[in-house]
Write a protein that binds this DNA or RNA. Sequence first.
RNA 1: GCGGACGUGGCGGAAUUGGUAGACGCAAGGGACUUAAAAUCCCUCGGGACUCCCGUACGGGUUCGAUUCCCGUCGUCCGCACCA
Length: 876
Amino acid sequence: MTAERYNPRESEAKWQNVWETRKTFQTSNDDTRPKYYVLEMFPYPSGRIHMGHVRNYAMGDVVARYKRARGFNVLHPMGWDAFGMPAENAAMQNKSHPARWTYANIATMRGQLKSMGLSLDWSREIATCDPSYYRHQQKMFLDFLAAGLVDRKRSKVNWDPDDHTVLANEQVIDGRGWRSGAIVEQRELTQWFLKISDYSQELLDGLDGLDRWPEKVRLMQRNWIGRSEGLMIRFEVDGSTAPSGITELEIFTTRPDTLFGAKFMAIAPDHPIASAAAAENSELKAFIEECRKGGTSVAAIETAEKIGYDTGIRVQHPFDSNWQLPVYVANFVLMDYGTGAIFGCPAHDQRDLDFVNKYGLGNTPVVCPPDIRPDDFKVTDVAFDGEGRLINSRFLDGMSIPDAKEEVARRLETVVLGNRSQAKRQINFKLRDWGISRQRYWGCPIPVIHCDACGVVPVPVGDLPVQLPDDVTFDQPGNALERHPTWKSVSCPSCGAAARRETDTMDTFVDSSWYFARFTDPWIAEQPTNQLAANHWLPVDQYIGGIEHAILHLLYSRFFTRAMKRTGHCDISEPFRGLFTQGMVVHETYRGRDGGWFTPNEIKFVTDSSGRHAYSLETGEEVTIGSSEKMSKSKRNTVDPDDIIGTFGADTARWFMLSDSPPERDVAWTEEGVQGSARYVQQLWRLVNDLSEFAAPVGTSVLTAMNVQANAVRKATHTHLARVEESIGRLRFNTAIAEIRKLSNTLISSIAGIETEVTDAAVKAAYREAADVLVRMFAPMMPHLAEECWSVLGHTSPVSESSWPTLNPDLTINDMITLPIQINGKKRGELTIEADADNASIERETLKLEAIQRALSGQSVKKFIVVPKRIVNVVI
RNA sequence: GCGGACGUGGCGGAAUUGGUAGACGCAAGGGACUUAAAAUCCCUCGGGACUCCCGUACGGGUUCGAUUCCCGUCGUCCGCACCA
């Protein structure tokens, strides 16, 4: 009866082979079952997989295996986000080639992923650095160009001085490059842009429909898109105060209601009027220089002191020709938002208030809070931006803010200034166009040619792909394509004259903006997508990845899918129907007295009455146990998945990753926790072996349970099955695991008393059912162990090919239930009664309870509250 | 500064979404088996003045009933950051 210990090393390799031979996880595009597309964010081939990958792919695999068992045709592919800077850095260090480094890493990591036993369709594997992938990206770039979705313009860009390349706005975090961490500089360059801002409103509206996305991510995208409604107003310039030719100043405001509180105008240092005025004023010129210098450094942004310079220019107030306002150049006004000019109303805008307090321009409140008398309302250091009624504003007095906004808009729309309305309603967005030019070698070449005569000429589709040359060197920084001796030189496709290839490559976020579509038919050579397959499989039903892509990747993909729709590559707009963002894997940190970090492998632990202590294995020195932080090389708190899988097996690693912590939260990797999971693997193995001896043969049907014991087993089986289904459905893997453990605990106690054998047919049938259900329940989490158990139970085909157990809802309902009885909301007793008892009998039986009688101590009952099947509350 | 999330035993967390707070696990303590260890099994495990009372950061409110809803305070974490 005692089975040998389960040996994960042998079993896992064995079953991985079986799955591969049987092509269990290969997915056909012509399958009539309902489709389900589950995808985890594909990895960057950095070298080896880390615990974050293990967690991400374990979760995706549970979903994939569960949905497959439930009868869906599941698409679960894997690929490589293979272009990018680290490959070039590695090539530079090793005097090698980025491709060699990348493909070697892919081979290693593919092997590691396979050792996890993931139910992936490897026949669909893609790598974005492969010409068979990026040629299609080039084709789509040309289609986007033809459709007017691409722009080439000279603009101020974020320059990363370490990586020698440009970064998109989304890739600048706290003034630093997202990858290099270098402080980003501003440079003026001609760059390629994808016109994501054309879709600002659509991308914003689309968020409302993404009800299976985390609210947090939707909010972040909403803020990033940054819609605001307001009014563009042109102020007439007093010609006697301004350089010649300047007649008006156009501003954007969301608070036209506060126009009578205006104290000054402010324009950005790069504003054309500022430049014009600076041409005649060297002091102003110096001030503008100063603003530019300070503008981008982290320190300058943090201190954010508001400084300004009065240009001497004066403008007319739109509602009072006798009222003039001074025009300042101010460092806090941004040229690339709105018109690069504002009017300042200090009483109701903190920034403007700081500014006037510094330059002594005063303030006039024009919106009065509801609970203050207008005469008493003064603003000194804190601007008021709440609700209220208009004051000190002539014809607006007494109005609400929305009414006043409307009134100002209505009036100024009808005023004509220089042949046009003085004001027009305007919606602005923070979202900027997506700069995709990168001055790097290891990326997808932008397929255009520059001809002196014809300008920018697209590469003819027949000439695609524009392939990266192999003979490149990385002995110096910068773009290897730029210094290649011949690659650039081509003849113009249009006129045949000597011309130059574009040497910029695409941002790697372009590569990841459509890979999910390519997976639906990665074989098609003529087109980026097979429309039929793409429209069938997309959107991705469940996408799983890290929160760090909340804006970058997830916003770009939403845009790119719309652009693909517009250019006829697919017929959907939203790529990801359901999104789940998983938490990080964290680990304790260990630090020696000298501040050096220790890896978990270099530590031994001692727990005594004074608590848990860590000591260096080598020197015996006591080491400080620090907080749990994201696993990182710098803090040396990493654990290598290979070691774990080698020691405990993939199932243990997967199980541990899914238990305890809710998936969206960080999980702390602990040695004790892993050992707990490993123990459970053996416990299940013993249980299933025992059950196989007591259970009826495979295929014995359980029609009726004829006795109490069989019935109890069946009820436990179906009750926990129902909860596991519910938990997996909500991606609550931790509670699914708790329910599986409850069932196995129940079964362990149930068979504990059995001495020799079971003779009762009903009980044998119930154990057969319980064992078969149990194994299929944990199969998505621990697929290898499940296969081994399934086979012990006498099944001949793999559990990965069998269907999910059928729930019998009748067995989750009890005839008798136990209701807690409260008196005035405090629990005083319990009542066990028929589940279908009516309220009258519940009340009658409640009053018979001794504990209740005692608690009542003769007082009369005011009210009886019976919540069916939940609780009884007696109010006295 | 603006926006958001969260706060439950020694620890990770659960609570059918307003109905028995602490499921499941980790750690710890006690015991059995063993020459011993590992493995395994059994018991205890929020606090207390222990037929009862207190307890879900703190203070209030709504309710028959609040971990859950509302208001305020404190704390932690995250995102955006001069966006007019």
